[in-house]
């Protein structure tokens, strides 16, 4: 059960799955808060003792302090899972960011329209479609950059084509 990289990808795949099997597919989401376990606490106290014993390093003393605190804070995650028992397809996406929750629930709502067999559309669907369209080329561009000098040429070609079309 792999986790998908981006929420846009998760939404796309889930909507495809829901289109194919709207009755059997369900979406489960789990919000979970975990306290650090005993081993982690022990490790952290040991680490702190070591740090205290070591002579103070004047070059970079301030930056490490918050990292130590965050190790003992409870960890919260939000996992979305689309599962179809008939085909065994399972799509997951995980996040720890509060900023994403609103958008994710929004996409749950749009997926809900598939489940309710309501027609796609309404004005609110325009924005996400654009967002998806914007996000996918970004990924492609990144890939292209990794590949080497190919993207500049292809982009230029695309531009020329567009210009020709306009004329």
């Amino acid at each position: 059960m792999p986790y998908l990289e981006t929420s846009a990808e998760w939404y796309e795949q889930s909507s495809l799955l829901l289109k194919a099997r709207p009755t059997t597919t369900h979406i489960t989401s789990k919000y979970t808060v975990l306290k650090p376990n005993a081993r982690k606490i022990k490790k952290n106290t040991k680490y702190l003792e070591k740090r205290a014993a070591r002579p103070a390093d004047s070059s970079r003393p301030t930056s490490e302090a918050p990292a130590v605190d965050s190790a003992l804070e409870p960890k919260a995650t939000f996992v979305l899972k689309t599962y179809d028992p008939a085909s065994g397809t399972c799509l997951q996406y995980q996040t720890t960011k509060a900023a994403e929750v609103g958008r994710l629930i929004g996409s749950l709502g749009r997926l809900g329209r598939h489940q309710a067999a309501l027609p796609e559309g309404m004005e609110d669907l325009g924005a996400p479609a654009e967002a998806a369209a914007v996000s996918t080329p970004k990924v492609k561009v990144e890939e292209d950059v990794k590949m080497g000098g190919v993207p500049a040429e292809s982009k230029a070609g695309g531009g020329k084509k567009k210009k020709k079309g306009k004329k």
């Binding site: 919000y31 900023a99 629930i105 749950l108 709502g109 609110d124």
Partner: peptide
């Protein structure tokens, strides 16, 4: 459905306070 999910998003945003703030 649409009205429900607007409210649902608000409830979840408020409820999932443990997640990392920006």
């Amino acid at each position: 459905l649409d009205a429900f999910f607007v409210q649902y998003a608000e409830a979840c945003k408020a409820g999932m306070s443990g997640l990392k703030k920006r």
